[in-house]
Nucleic acid binder design. Structure first.
Length: 794
DNA sequence: CAGTGAGCGAGCTTCCGCTTGACTT
């Protein structure tokens, strides 16, 4: 007979808690929500005060059955879901679905998973907060209304299977607007002046001193004039000032900051970070990884203090409490931290180790003393120029403090900085300096950076849009819908001018640099642009960056009992729904985003571009005319915003027949993967340097024959006894193909000489290796590689 | 990593937030 049943959200948490509570308590997990609006149906009865129609999803039925069974056996059921809006709703759904009795049900919450916190929670039970539950229902129902009313509008007006929502549509808007900002950006050039001086120290040794002119010159003439003046000038130390400078550590990790730092320091994608963190959480290494709180438990503070004292000494300790600044934070959990502060390192995969170390360092650093630096600023006067002076700065670390373990990484979008300065040589006021060289370099202003996954998460969090559990899924959704692609932008070559004064002569040279290259950045597709423009025009309220913040305020009022949730929804719906109706009713002549480019000279038919059933497409003629319109897909590098009439007409020149060879037709076309030639029953992608418009029959035949030959060589050997196995020749050399998988052949083995037995041996070997890598290598890693752990430190 | 290649007149598609599997890659 079970006395007590405790239900929490996460099974890992359940396991830990069960240990604290003894045998009178059984702890189970709800695995998040157990009930939701129906997946496929609207499920909201607007006419009856937005009554939601809930159902238990199929994959939760077995679990709910078990929970029911155990709840029936228990004297008391303790609903211990998280202390936030969603957690309260989970408790309420459990109460309803399990048909619990008020006198046998208690609602408890705890913020840290320690024995004392849990026992304390048991001592202070409360009842379910129905206002908070209503706030969640309002949130849920509003999101469903927005998503399920807006998406069908897009199906009608743009393209099927698209989607819109309170969070995803704003995420796309951010990326679209940034791209337009970049398109509108005009670079400006200015001359930056740096100088290299020589100062003699007490021993007569010469030391270099780098200095910069604070202002930049707008024109070359000004820069030249300045250098001309410097040619005859003498330089003297003006002011020397020394200022102390303190740096404080950042707060411990939340989901969003962990995603940002793991992207910058470890090169992880947002999804990757969450996957690795989940594994660390499940194996008990770190606390919960979906959190917006920067709070650390008393236990964590104490054990951090002990660890710092032991590893670095008392002076490095500084216990700090951090407060959450982000809008709408719900703080149901702690910050993300190691469960055991005594372990700077753990066993695990390479990725797990690296992420864990990052978390350990950030947590420890947050409890360490400020770094104390000393910044020296020296001005260097120029004879005969009152208004101009060079400035040299030097920074010396007096006490490293938290910098000993953790340095915040530079923002990827921060300008490249080369002001890395160390100690300045000893200098005296009035001291004259020899000038080695002065350089005026033409520099260009940079367009704002495109978003990375991580910087988009930061922006969304700043706007209070989305939650820790949805950042990664949102980013994947907007890419799946093809509103956004993640990709690289190659840099552009740019010439710049350098003037250099040296040995009394001014040289003038031109150099080139590659600039503006970006990696793994988010860029809008044509579909993204069209959908965004459409939504911002017809539903500006939903697409407003403040929409979420505004409705969140109302959800808070519901939670406080100041407003009824149905009232809030009425106000919203009465405004929103008519705009959906009128947008649908508006019989516009063409689809959203359609652009007419002109007419085809031959026929006089209209040429236009739009988002078609399969993406951006050019069209000649209009539907409803006698002749059916002709279509041609746009190339990857073209956009319906910028394509010209000529470029669009060019698209219709493919596919085109090149001629006949050996009685077979050879043609050139444009496919999903770029231009190709087709003949003899095979396809070959055209190499970049061959233009599909001017490719000749001879070139095409040559390519096709080469491919045929390679195809013939592809099969090296097969065995009658085992038809599934084959030795093949791929573009990376020979390999074994076996039951749909491929295995490499070690160097030095002649593939044609392999026997079936030795092939199967190779397959088995590589399968085992792969299996070992998959499992958590608790025992697999025998000898640690020593070279890898050494840190690169100055 | 191991090779792809069209269609543009009905089918169905979709939201945000909680939580992990059970499948192959």
């Amino acid at each position: 007979m079970q006395k007590n049943l405790v239900i929490v959200e996460s099974p890992a948490k359940a396991k830990t808690i069960e240990k604290f509570l003894g045998k009178d308590f059984k702890v189970m997990s709800s695995y998040g929500h157990i009930r939701d609006l129906k997946k496929k149906a609207f499920s909201i009865d607007i006419a009856h005060d937005f009554k939601p129609e809930y159902e238990i999803p199929a994959d939760k039925r077995a679990l709910v059955g078990q929970l029911k069974e155990e709840a029936a056996k228990a004297d008391t059921v303790w609903l211990a879901s998280d202390e936030d809006r969603e957690g309260e709703a989970i408790a309420w759904h459990l109460y309803e679905v399990l048909k619990l009795k008020p006198e046998h049900t208690k609602r408890i919450v705890f913020h840290e998973i320690t024995k004392s916190a849990i026992l304390n929670a048991i001592e202070h039970p409360r009842s379910i907060d129905l206002n908070l539950v209503d706030a969640q229902q309002a949130r849920r129902v509003l999101d469903r209304i927005v998503g399920f009313e807006l998406s069908p509008v897009l199906w009608r007006k743009v393209k099927p299977a698209l989607s819109a929502g309170r969070v995803q549509s704003v995420a796309v808007r951010l990326i679209v607007e940034r791209e337009r900002e970049i398109n509108a950006f005009r670079t400006e050039a200015a001359y930056r002046v740096t100088a290299l001086f020589l100062a003699s120290d007490a021993d007569g040794k010469q030391a270099e001193l780098k200095a910069e002119l604070p202002r930049r010159f707008k024109t070359k003439a000004e820069a030249q004039d300045f250098l001309e003046h410097c040619r005859a000038a003498r330089f003297r130390i003006g002011d020397i000032s020394t200022k102390p400078l303190r740096k404080s550590p950042s707060a411990p990790f939340t989901t969003s900051t962990l995603q940002q730092e793991a992207a910058r320091k470890l090169g992880f994608t947002v999804a990757q970070t969450m996957m690795v963190a989940q594994r660390l959480y499940e194996s008990g290494m770190i606390t919960y990884m979906r959190t917006d709180s920067v709070n650390l438990s008393e236990f964590a503070l104490n054990s951090s203090r002990e660890a710092i004292t032991r590893l670095m000494g008392e002076p490095y300790v500084c216990t700090r409490h951090f407060a959450t600044k982000t809008k709408g934070a719900q703080e149901a959990h702690e910050a993300i931290r190691p469960t055991n502060m005594d372990s700077p390192k753990i066993e695990g995969t390479h990725q797990e180790k690296r992420l864990y170390e990052l978390i350990w360092k950030r947590t420890i650093a947050s409890q360490m003393a400020d770094a104390v630096l000393e910044k020296t600023t020296v001005t260097i006067g120029i004879d005969g120029m009152k208004d101009e002076a060079f400035v040299a700065t030097g920074e010396v670390v007096k006490f490293d403090g938290f910098l000993r373990v953790y340095r915040d990484s530079m923002d990827d979008d921060a300008d490249l900085r080369d002001d890395e300065t160390g100690l300045l040589p000893p200098l005296k006021k009035g001291q004259e300096l020899a000038c080695n060289e002065i350089t005026a370099t033409e520099r260009f202003s940079q367009h704002p950076p495109r978003y990375t996954e991580a910087s988009l998460v930061r922006k969304l969090e700043e706007l209070g849009i989305g939650r820790p559990s949805t950042y990664a899924p949102t980013i994947s959704t907007i890419q799946q819908r093809e509103y956004v692609v993640k990709g690289d932008k190659p840099g552009e070559e740019r010439a710049y001018n350098v003037l250099c004064l040296r040995d009394g002569k001014i040289s003038d040279s031109t150099r080139t640099e590659t600039t503006g290259a970006e990696k793994a950045k988010l860029m809008p597709t044509d579909t993204g642009l069209v959908v965004n423009d459409f939504l911002t025009e017809y539903f500006p309220n939903i697409l407003d960056y403040n929409f979420t913040a505004t409705v969140e305020k109302q959800f808070d009022e519901i939670a406080e009992g100041e407003k009824k949730w149905t009232g809030v929804l009425h106000t919203f719906y009465d405004h929103f729904h008519p705009s959906v109706e009128s947008t649908l009713a508006a019989k516009s002549a063409h689809k959203a985003g359609e652009r007419v480019l002109g007419t085809e000279p031959k026929t006089g038919k209209q040429v236009s571009v739009k988002i078609g059933r399969f993406g951006p497409v050019a069209q000649i003629g209009a539907a409803g005319e006698d002749e059916k319109p002709r279509f041609a897909q746009l190339r990857k590098d073209q956009s319906i915003e910028t394509i010209t009439l000529e470029e669009a007409l060019d698209l219709f020149k493919l596919p085109r027949t090149l001629g006949e060879q050996d009685g077979q037709t050879v043609s050139v076309g444009a496919g999903r993967f770029g231009p190709y030639v087709h003949g003899f029953g095979i396809y070959v992608t055209l190499p970049k340097e061959i233009d599909p418009m001017s490719v000749t029959l001879e070139q095409a035949v040559e390519l096709l024959k080469a491919k045929q030959e390679a195809e013939a060589k592809r099969h090296i050997k097969r065995f009658d006894e085992e038809p599934d196995l084959e030795i093949m020749n791929g573009r990376y050399g020979p390999y074994i193909s076996y039951q749909g998988n491929n295995y490499k052949i070690p160097a030095g083995i002649e593939p044609a000489d392999l026997s079936l037995a030795s092939c199967l041996e190779l397959v088995k070997l590589q399968e085992e290796k792969a299996a070992a890598r998959k499992k958590r290598p608790a025992r697999a890693a025998k000898a640690e590689k020593p070279a890898k752990t050494a840190k690169a430190k100055k």
